[in-house]
Design a protein around this nucleic acid. Structure first.
Lengths: 341, 341
DNA sequence: AAATCAAAAGTAAGCGTTTACGTACTTTTT
DNA sequence: AAAAAGTACGTAAACGCTTACTTTTGATTT
C-alpha cells in the first residue's frame, strides 16, 4: 500500500518514469518497465486518484443519475438491474460509479449541479423518461458527456441506449394475433414516455400489418401495478380477449384485477407484459412477456459513455438492445365466450 | 463556475483567506467573510474536490457496498429503498455516494480492494447478511470506518443499523395469537442471517410468553418468492392455521402457493410478512406485515458513519429502527376447519 | 508612551500526479 | 567520422487546495 511516489524513491527512479511505466506510456525501456511493474505489484502500489485528478482533470468517475422523484425505482426493478450491469462494466474499465439523484434546483440550472460544477464525473448516465428534455439539452450543450437509457430525444443529438421496444412489441402482438385474438386492448402509461410510445406503436404496427382493427389504448399517468389493476377494471368492461400491457408491473396488476373479477387467465383472456422482471416467471400464472436484457443495457451504456468521453465515436449513437419473446402461461388461444365453462 | 483560486485573485485576497472563509473557519473578519461569500455565490465558485482531497486526504465520499452476488437486490426491493434514504442523507451533508459491489478478490484481502487501497471513500456501508464476517473484521481492523445495515456482529465492535426485528416479530406474532391461532408455522430463511434469526426469535418469544407451544420452523437457503411458495407447499401439509414469514417476498410466495392449492386467505389460513415492501399493500389479498422504515435506516446509517469518521462517537453504536405492525387482510380470526364452506 | 496581546491576513510548503522540456547516450544516416 | 535522429530517463512546473507559521495591524494594559 504505497504511492507511486514512494515507489519511485524506493527504486531510485524518477517519479516521471514510474508514471510512464504504470500508465503504459512509451519512454521506458522494457527492462526497467518490467522491474517497476513487478515491484509495484509486490508493494501494492497505487496511484492517488486525487493527485491524478488534479493533474489530468479527469475524475475517472461515471455518474448514474435518477430523477429525484423516487417513483420509478420503487416500483420498477428494471432500473436497478441496469444499474448492476453498468457497475460491472464500469468496474472492469477501472472506473467508478457514483449514484446521484438530480436535485430539484439542478433541473433548471445544470451548471449548478454539484457533480457538474465540481467536475466530479467525466460523464453522466441519465435513466428514465422522467428527466426533462430541457435539462438534458442544457447538460449536453455545456459539454458534459451524456448517455440516455430508456429515453431518446429525436431533436437533440444525445447518445442513447434503449431496448428494441418497437420490435419486441410487434412480436408479442403477433403472438397474440396468431392465437386468434382480434379484440385487443392496450394498457399504456403516459404517451410521452419514449419507450412507452414505442411499445404502443409496435403493438399497433402488428395489427396494421395483419389487417386487423387497431386495439383500443388505455392511457394512465404511470405504469405501476396499482395502475395496471385499475386500468384493467375499466378496460375489461369492453370484453376484449387480450390485453397488451406496456410493462410487467401493469400486466401483473391486470392479472390481479382479473383474479378479483373471476376472469381466468389464459382461459378467458390473455395478458402480456414487457421487460421480463424477475417475478414475471414466478407469478401465479407465469407471464408471457418480452425479455429485455437489462444488464446488457447497462453495459452498453457504460461502453458508449466511455467512448464518448474519449471522443472516439461519430456523431450521435443510438444502441438498440435486442429483446426476446418469452411465451409462458398467461396467453392462450381465443375461445368464443359462450364456449366458456 | 470559477475555482476558489480564481476568486482569490479577482478579489485581491490570498487563497488562504478564501479557503478559511469558504470553509467557515476562524481567522477572517466578518466584513471580509461576507464579501467573499457573496462574491463566491455570485460567481458560482467551487472548490476542486481533487485539490481538497489531495490536501486533506479526505475524499468526502461514502461507499455503499453490496456483495457481488446480485441475488439480494434482484429479489428484494428492500435494499434499494435503503439506498435512496442514504443518498438523501449523504447529499444533504455535502458528501457523495459511490456504489460498489465487493469483487471476489477483495473478500480475502480487503486492503486490495480498490476503494480501500486508493482511499476513495472515507467510510463504507455494508448491506446485507451475505458479507463474510471475516471480511468485515479485516476491514475494521485496518481502520476503515464501517457501518453495517441489516447485519450485526456480536463479537466485533462494528457499528450497525438494524430494524427492531425482534420487537416487530413479537408484535405480529402477538397479533396472530390474539386471533386465536395456536397451530402456527414459521417460514424462515437461513438461520445464520442476523435479521432472519432475530425475527424467528421474536416470533418464538411471543408464543413462549403466551404459554403456547412453539411454532414449527421451516428453514430454507434464501428468502425469495419462489422459496416461500415451495416452503408453503411443504408446510401446509401439517395444517397449521397461520404462517409467519420472515419477509414479504416469502409471504407472497406462500399466498401464491395457497391460491394454487385452493386454500383461501384469510378464511382458511392467515399469512404474515415482514418489511412492508411496496407491493405488499397492493397484493391480491393485502398483506398483514411489519413495516420497516427503509429510508430511515439509510439515513441513520449515513449519520452514524459520518459521526464515526469524525470520531465523534463512543465505542460501538447500534441503532434499532422502530417497526410498525400493518394489519391488512391476510390475517383473520381462526375458525375450526370443519366450519369451513 | 511603551509593552503586551489578539486578531486578521498573507506566505509558503506540501499533498501526488502528469507532461512538456531538457540532457545524456546510442543508433542510424551521409 | 561527423551529423542527425532516436531513445531513455530526469527535471520541474502545474494542477488547486489546506494549514502551520509569519507578519501586520490594532486594541488593551501598564
Amino acid at each position: 500500500m504505497i504511492t507511486a511516489k514512494a515507489l519511485a524513491s524506493e527504486l531510485g527512479v524518477s517519479i516521471a518514469t514510474i508514471s510512464r511505466a504504470l500508465n503504459g506510456k512509451p519512454g521506458v525501456s522494457p527492462e526497467l518497465r518490467e522491474k517497476i511493474l513487478n515491484e509495484a505489484a509486490e508493494r501494492n502500489t497505487y496511484i492517488s486518484p486525487a493527485a491524478r485528478m488534479l493533474a489530468t482533470s479527469r475524475s475517472q468517475n461515471i455518474c448514474f443519475a435518477v430523477h429525484h422523484l423516487p417513483g420509478p425505482f420503487n416500483t420498477d426493478p428494471f432500473y436497478f438491474q441496469v444499474l448492476l450491469g453498468l457497475e460491472e462494466e464500469i468496474r472492469k474499465a477501472g472506473l467508478n460509479l457514483t449514484l446521484e439523484t438530480i436535485p430539484e434546483e439542478a433541473i433548471a440550472n445544470p451548471e449548478n449541479w454539484r457533480i457538474v460544477r465540481e467536475k466530479r464525473a467525466d460523464g453522466i448516465i441519465l435513466i428514465g423518461p422522467f428527466i426533462p428534455a430541457s435539462f438534458i439539452l442544457k447538460l449536453h450543450s455545456i459539454g458534459v458527456p451524456v448517455v440516455l437509457i430508456d429515453n431518446f430525444l429525436e431533436r437533440v443529438p444525445v447518445d442513447a441506449v434503449v431496448a428494441d421496444d418497437r420490435r419486441g412489441a410487434r412480436e408479442v402482438a403477433e403472438h397474440i394475433i396468431s392465437l386468434g385474438h382480434s379484440k385487443v386492448a392496450i394498457l399504456s402509461g403516459p404517451e410521452d414516455w419514449y419507450s412507452n410510445a414505442e411499445r404502443v406503436s409496435g403493438f399497433k404496427d402488428a395489427f396494421k400489418k395483419a389487417g386487423i382493427a387497431e386495439p383500443i389504448v388505455y392511457n394512465a399517468d404511470d405504469t405501476t401495478f396499482a395502475t395496471g389493476k385499475a386500468l384493467f377494471e375499466i378496460a375489461s368492461k369492453k370484453k376484449a380477449t387480450a390485453y397488451l400491457a406496456v410493462n410487467d408491473a401493469m400486466a401483473m396488476g391486470a392479472m390481479d384485477a382479473a383474479n378479483g373479477l373471476g376472469i381466468y387467465i389464459p382461459k378467458d383472456v390473455s395478458i402480456t407484459g414487457f421487460d421480463d422482471i424477475d417475478s414475471a416467471a414466478n407469478w401465479t400464472v407465469p407471464l408471457t412477456t418480452v425479455q429485455v436484457q437489462k444488464k446488457f443495457i447497462g453495459q452498453a451504456a457504460g461502453r458508449l459513455l466511455w467512448a464518448r468521453i474519449d471522443d472516439k465515436i461519430a456523431p450521435r449513437q443510438r444502441v438498440d438492445v435486442g429483446t426476446k419473446l418469452m411465451i409462458r402461461s398467461s396467453t392462450g388461444p381465443i375461445k368464443a365466450l359462450k364456449e366458456k365453462k
